[in-house]
């Protein structure tokens, strides 16, 4: 009697869980599958077929598109992109890490203000933020004119339309995405560990490199991925601040889809970006597991701010 009651109770609970999943998560998961997963898989599929004459696809299997990516022209763009995205990432970390560290040292009330001020620019129009740098770096712009006024240079110098301008624009765009995860990882670090290192004879610099840095590495990695991958795929900054002279993977992909109408080759290039993302996340997960066996829900948490 009592056994059957609990059994039907358990059955009801299971039914309720399934109903809950279907009602609540069902529509969303379906939507994501339809409008993200299938489209991305489609990109994968397209990469193995031939291009149509006016865009689109001809259903004949080929590995041609992959072979093409190894042509010197494209290898050049790829390596150039990696260098620019890499430089951007390093710069963003060099600026972002100490800033995040400084924020953790603020009184609690000011910490929130400081964090909101970091996120705020990120939520504003990306084109507008890039446009601001066109104004700043212009030969008639404030940077050049104040340098001339100060007598540091005699005539305006070409700041705009250089790889440097592209890097500055990318750092500006993605700096908030470095600061947040790094902040979170420093905030989470047990301060007593640094005291312990100091107590055992480590100088402040030594304690930083032996304890703080390795233990915040998972956060640093997340920040690095959040800068590196979107930098690779960005075509607006190279175009507006690089003046089209700096070509990155993002520009190539854009051109293949909208101008050259070679979707399969564009798909191969997009897969390159996606696989980098996946590989980097896998490395990040491995590192955070190695360090403290946690960090699973780490990436997901950061999305709130991204």
């Amino acid at each position: 009697m009592s056994a059957s009651t609990t059994q039907s109770g358990r059955g009801a609970a299971r039914r309720r869980a399934l109903t809950g999943r279907a009602i609540f998560a069902g529509p969303g998961l379906l939507y994501i599958t339809l409008f993200m997963t299938i489209p991305v898989l489609l990109v994968l599929v397209y990469s193995f077929f031939q291009r149509g004459r006016f865009g689109g696809i001809v259903w004949e299997f080929t590995l041609e598109n992959y072979v093409r990516a190894f042509e010197p022209v494209y290898l050049n763009v790829l390596s150039n992109s990696l260098v620019i995205a890499g430089t951007t990432t390093v710069l963003a970390l060099v600026i972002g890490y100490p800033t995040a560290y400084a924020i953790t040292r603020l009184p609690k009330r000011w910490r929130t203000v400081a964090l909101v001020l970091v996120v705020l620019p990120f939520w504003t129009n990306f084109l507008i933020r890039t446009y601001a740098w066109i104004v700043l770096l212009n030969s008639e712009g404030p940077i050049n004119s104040s340098l001339v006024d100060a007598g540091i240079i005699s005539a305006p110098i070409g700041l705009l339309y250089t790889p440097g301008a592209v890097i500055v624009g990318l750092v500006y765009a993605y700096l908030p995405l470095v600061i947040l995860p790094v902040y979170a990882s420093i905030e989470r670090l047990d301060r007593q560990l640094i005291e312990a290192a100091s107590n055992l004879g480590a100088s402040r610099v030594r304690a930083f490199f032996d304890v703080t840095l390795p233990l915040t590495l998972p956060g640093v990695m997340i920040g690095a991925i959040f800068v590196f991958v979107p930098s690779l795929g960005n075509f607006v900054v190279p175009e507006l601040l690089g003046g089209g002279k700096t070509v990155m993977v993002g520009n190539l992909i854009r051109d293949q889809f909208l101008e050259a109408r070679d979707w399969p080759f564009g798909a191969v290039l997009a897969l390159f970006v996606i696989s980098l993302l996946v590989i980097l996340f896998a490395i990040q997960a491995a590192i955070s597991r190695r360090i403290n066996g946690t960090g699973k829900r780490y990436a997901a948490k950061q999305v709130t701010h991204a």
């Binding site: 312990a196 290192a197 107590n199 032996d210 233990l215 403290n292």
Partner: peptide, 29 residues
């Protein structure tokens, strides 16, 4: 400074370095 004092402290939470094994923790000082 704390790192120059001939005094050692055992922390309440132990403050063991989670990324080092036992031997490395002990050898650190």
């Amino acid at each position: 400074p704390p790192n120059k004092r001939p005094v050692n402290l055992m922390f309440q939470s132990y403050a063991l370095f989670p990324h080092m094994n036992v031997r490395k923790n002990i050898a650190y000082g």
